[in-house]
Design a protein around this nucleic acid. Structure first.
Length: 455
RNA sequence: GCCCCCUUCGUCUAGCCCGGUCCAGGACACCUCGUUUUCACUGAGGUAACUGGGGUUCGAAUCCCCAAGGGGGCGCCA
């Protein structure tokens, strides 16, 4: 019987949470959940210079925001801790000694090096621009779960413990994967070439390496290279601040390097989990496209149950000072009910619905210009419409009749009155269904806004 | 410079493993048109791709080779 899957995400808290890291974490998490295995969070903080507690917190927060819970790691514990590499130094020293005793590692220039097996010769290295000792070691063969067979030979000994007494990434990464009984390493393709180093270390320990799955990288929207922290849209916090739905961000991230088998692009996480397979991960890099993510966000937002939508909308409207605690949940629900199917994002919600709550709503000059261009004088239209609305029943069908009556009285189309009425009451050129807007706005507000428009 | 990976519409991709059903399908974006109830919606339609060259084959997006392009790695960073 195969041992249960244990995967890990091993970030080093040296910066904000990058979208590429998030996607790597996500694929690990998905695989754990798909297989019923364990998802372990391990903090690779061996570089004291560059690590910070603030960045660690950002990573933990972002992971939770995206709904990626870990079974072992910081704040939750586990049987293989500690989960901070900075707290595992004694283990690494012991492991180094083990290799040294076996003659697999040696000291030079104060640092410890892994000794490769093979013939040695001094060779000038074009990249390093100096003469170094190269080793003709046998190639390491990797049977990668997404790349297939990859063969690569290391050609020189490499440092595993620095002269300052701290271990190097390649070493701690492998030691911890052994100690934590990691069965599958799912990581970015940028580590593919490093894997031969890791396999050499496994070999030195006489340990069986885990399965590997090297996933494609996320490239910049335009321009060369992979996404870097400085690129627009690269940081998870940004989406959090902009009120993106975490489920939508997560959904989009899944699409970068993997395709759901049932043909849907927007789908619930349970379905993603059940369809997710490492063998279906793509081999080629994907370019980041924020517009597609925004689209998925819109779809997800529209599909939300009304009460969830309202719960998300309320604090956003409060923060924009459009509503306060005095608003009844009934009133709020009434407004949001006609808005949810039209708004494109929670970020845009305040400007989209502001006119319901304040008389000092913004007027879209473009919309006004358009209005005059298309339908003649908007003030004349409101003038013609007003009496019909004043005598109207304040229901959508009543309002509809009023528009129709105004139209036939002045030999016009009902739609000729729509844009002027919308602009006069909301300052917008578009928005939720107009009759719904007027209904929810109420008779008094509607009439007074129309009157002040023509005043 | 050396090594590794990749290569279908502008972008994300389906198809490729098991060659014919693909004059290549979907989605985002873009463009057009429609709705006597607007629109950031919705409906209909459109533009647009198998990197190039050689092979194998009756037949290749699918198999093989080469080239080119893209990406990554080569640190006492992770």
């Amino acid at each position: 019987m195969k041992s249960p899957v244990r995967v890990r995400f091993a970030p080093s808290p040296t910066g904000f949470f990058h979208i590429g890291s998030a996607r790597t974490a996500l694929f690990n998490w998905l695989y754990a959940r798909h297989t019923g295995g364990k998802f372990i969070l391990r903090i690779e903080d061996t570089d004291k210079e560059r690590n910070s507690a603030e960045f660690l917190q950002v990573i933990l927060d972002s992971m939770r925001w995206l709904g990626m819970d870990w079974d072992e790691g910081p704040e939750v514990g586990g049987d293989y801790g500690p989960y901070f590499q900075s707290q595992r130094t004694e283990l690494y020293r012991a492991k180094l000694k083990e290799l040294a005793d076996k003659g697999k590692a040696y000291e030079k220039d104060g640092a410890w090096w892994l000794r490769l097996e093979g013939a040695r010769a001094m060779v000038f290295d074009d990249h390093l621009k100096k003469e170094i000792e190269k080793v003709s070691a046998a190639p390491m063969v990797l049977q990668d779960l997404v790349r297939g067979r990859v063969e690569r030979a290391e050609d020189r000994d490499f440092v595993i413990f620095r002269s300052n007494g701290e271990p190097v990434f390649h070493f701690v990464n492998v030691v911890d994967d052994i100690e934590m009984k990691i069965t599958h390493v799912i990581r970015g393709e940028d580590h593919l070439s490093n894997t031969s180093k890791h396999l050499e270390i496994f070999k030195a320990f006489g340990a069986t390496p885990p399965e590997y799955a090297h996933i494609p990288l996320i490239l910049k929207t335009d321009g060369p290279g992979k996404m870097s922290k400085r690129d627009r849209g690269a940081l998870i916090e940004e989406y959090q601040q902009r009120h993106y739905l975490p489920a939508a961000v997560r959904n989009y991230l899944c699409l970068l390097g993997w395709t759901p088998t049932d043909g849907r692009e927007v789908l619930p996480i349970e379905d993603i989990i059940s369809q997710f397979e490492l063998s279906a991960i793509h081999q080629s890099n994907a370019r980041f496209d924020e517009r597609k993510m925004a689209h998925i966000n819109t779809q997800t937002l529209r599909a939300l149950p009304a009460d969830e939508f309202n719960a998300l909308a309320k604090p956003i409207l409060s923060a924009a000072h459009l509503i306060d605690e005095s608003i009844s949940s009934q009133r709020l629900a009434e407004v949001l009910a006609i808005v949810q199917e039209k708004v494109i994002s929670l970020e845009h919600l305040p400007e989209f619905v502001g006119f319901f709550f304040t008389t000092s709503f913004k007027k879209d000059e473009n919309a006004l210009a358009n209005l005059t261009k298309k339908g003649g004088d908007p003030r004349a239209r409101i003038q013609e419409l007003l009496p019909h609305l004043e005598s109207s029943a304040w229901t959508e069908s009543g309002l509809e009749s009023a528009f129709n009556a105004a139209a036939s009285a002045h030999q016009r189309k009902p739609t000729d009155f729509f844009a002027p009425a919308r602009f006069a009451t909301s300052g917008q050129g578009g928005g939720p269904h107009l009759l719904g807007v007027l209904r929810v706005l109420g008779r008094d507000t509607t009439l007074s806004r129309l009157k002040s428009f023509i005043a």
